[in-house]
Design a protein around this nucleic acid. Structure first.
Lengths: 378, 378
DNA sequence: TTTGTGTGTTTGAACGTTCAAATCGTTCAA
DNA sequence: TTGAACGATTTGAACGTTCAAACACACAAA
């Protein structure tokens, strides 16, 4: 059973061997790599050739030890509800790794040690061991302890998701409210005059922003709008309703992820029931915007249960995230696509700026989304 | 605008300071950390206290440089079709990071540089820079060039997904065929005698195994079975059909990921059409197993389009992967849950064994799945 | 001729840790 | 009493790189 050659884990080519081969000193090889402009073109050529022929690559540990630069960014994976994971994390991570790679940086993934690990402790370990130059955080909440902690530590960081007004503004985020406003305009352009919104977990900033964006734009356009909390509550608070230019009543659903933790199967039917009730009532909405693609499934179900077709002829439906699910639905689901590559690029750019000690931009960056129109509304 | 204290990136506590504080030498501190049994209990106590009080953690770069151990595992993220990403990658990565963390290892994420990057080159870079002790590969195909390459390099590796018979057997995988056989038994136990299967991308080993497992178990139980290629083809090859103990005809759909690359929207409707045709035909199946949760959506659509209910009373449906989607469908979708934490644990265990130079197990490891029964079949 | 100013290259030291070998006591067998 | 063996600890060196400073040389200005 041949297993390949004895692996030469130790003893890879060093800078010294390259130097000897090129007839120069250690440092010149180092310069050729890190500051080519300091090396005479002819010498550079000789060194480059030697590097190529010997297949040399600097040992990253030695580099880091001496220079202090780790060339690695840490990504703190959010600990989300395994039953309700953030639907875009996989795609975001890919984009992040690509963006980092384009800048010569690697991405180190880490998580609080389960069970119920402390993210702050995980950050401390990584930083104390000097394994990363900077940190990328995601799923940032209002008053997030992680933000306060990394700011105190003084390690460069950025976040996908905006931080509070009193905190450092090193964030990149999508314009959740504007995205939902665009959805409302899209539906209005199709002739819809009474539209509904189905949300969930409204204490999450991005969810709250989507709902707010929906209501604001509907009011601006003089549409009649109904916003449903998607959470399960027997009697529950009254949904936000306003007609025409009336004022918006405020409410907050009582339960969130905390209340739902530990459940085996969520009480999704109540969301369906709420939408059905609306569809049966007077002035039923002719269109529904959902706060996520998965929530749109509940809307589909409610619409069909009421014997109506989903789509422009019946009840139009839109989602959020543009997950692969959208294309597999019938009709395919109109959804909001996030510019993950742009987000990742901006995050990496800003983070490296901070790592290099450049002055930080005074404000966060808000990126636009793209509405992908499909059969469910077009 | 206060920005936190000047960050002390350089100048963190070193082993020397700890040694001084504890009144011992460098090496004793090192021993206390790496080989506590060599240190007298009383001394160990003093050192441990000093470490805690000074908040010392060894610099990972210095450690790696001297000892050669990187304490980091590389995960080569597969470059999958962005329109059809592997649905379990996010969950698998989380499990992998946790399993690695439990062994004191970090996970470094890397990808071939886009566009159209070469995975082999990406591996070479990482290995040449000595940034990882071992590699985890995923989505392994038959005759995968990555496997041959890492075997040749001699770097320890493991794969999620089995390797070919001529290759090293350092893999962990789920029993795709057994999982689908369990689905068939589940449906048979519910009284179904004629069942259908909807697959896609059957040249992928795991998809082929699911299909094969379905057909084999159906035959064993004497059921009548129909397996549909889920791919879009106008006339397409005839689906595999067998009744009772008859022999299985073979076919292969003409197009796969390659043929589908670059498309904006997939031709999913044809899968729906194929299922509908089957449902309209004589001896229509009373149950359908799908090769993934997303494919189950097509089955739902087909069943409803034929005016039948999804569920035990009408046409039973099952999926694969147990994604969050399952719980949001109406009725909720019965699906096959993958033991991601067990897989990750086994992979990390085997990989570290190889890193330490222990003898490799002679064979791969196949882990069982779990059937989660929900409304669509229960 | 001397001095100054670059440009390109080399040399010595250092980064923080662990390895390998040496040292210092103690205990036990000869 | 010697010395062999062991356990606990220390010392010197090394891992492979980059920093900081020194050096060599060419060329222009005084």
């Amino acid at each position: 059973m041949p297993e390949g050659p004895q692996r030469p884990r130790r003893g890879a080519t060093t800078i010294e061997e390259v130097a000897r081969a090129a007839g120069v000193s250690r440092q010149t090889v180092s310069n050729a790599l890190n500051a080519p402009h300091r090396v005479r073109p002819e010498t550079l050529d000789r060194v480059t050739t030697a590097i190529r022929e010997l297949g040399y690559q600097p040992d990253q540990s030695a580099r880091s030890l001496r220079s202090g630069a780790r060339r690695t960014l840490g990504y703190l994976a959010p600990v989300d509800d395994p039953l309700d994971p953030n639907p875009l994390m996989a795609g975001f991570l890919e984009a992040l790794v690509d963006a980092a790679g384009a800048e010569g940086q690697r991405v180190l993934l880490f998580r609080p040690a389960p069970p119920a690990g402390d993210p702050v402790a995980a950050i401390d370990e990584l930083v104390a061991a000097r394994q990363v130059d900077g940190l990328v955080l995601a799923d940032v909440l209002a008053e997030d302890t992680r933000i306060a902690h990394v700011a105190r530590l003084g390690i460069p960081f950025v976040s996908f998701g905006r931080t509070g007004p009193g905190e450092p503004q090193h964030w990149v985020d999508i314009a959740n409210d504007a995205a939902m406003a665009a959805v409302v305009r899209h539906l209005a352009a199709l002739g819809h005059r009474r539209i509904g919104y189905l949300g969930v977990d409204e204490e999450l900033p991005w969810m709250a922003a989507r709902r707010a964006g929906f209501l604001a734009e509907a009011r601006r356009l003089g549409l009649s709008a109904v916003a449903l909390p998607g959470a399960a509550g027997e009697a529950g608070p009254a949904p936000v309703v306003h007609d025409g230019p009336a004022d918006v009543a405020s409410d907050r659903p009582a339960d969130g992820p905390a209340a739902r933790a530990g459940r085996e199967e969520p009480a999704a039917p109540s969301a369906v029931a709420a939408v059905r009730a609306l569809l049966r009532g007077p002035d039923r909405p002719t269109a529904f915007a959902a706060g996520s693609d998965l929530l749109a499934l509940d809307v589909y179900e409610a619409v069909r249960a009421e014997g109506l077709p989903v789509g422009p002829g019946g009840v139009a439906v839109t989602g959020f995230h543009d997950t692969p699910l959208c294309r597999h639905l019938h009709p395919a689901l109109t959804s909001v696509r996030l510019p993950l590559r742009a987000i990742a690029g901006a995050l990496v750019g800003r983070l490296l700026g901070r790592v290099r000690g450049e002055a930080a931009p005074a404000a966060g960056l808000e990126l636009p989304t793209e509405l992908v129109v499909r059969g469910s509304s077009g």
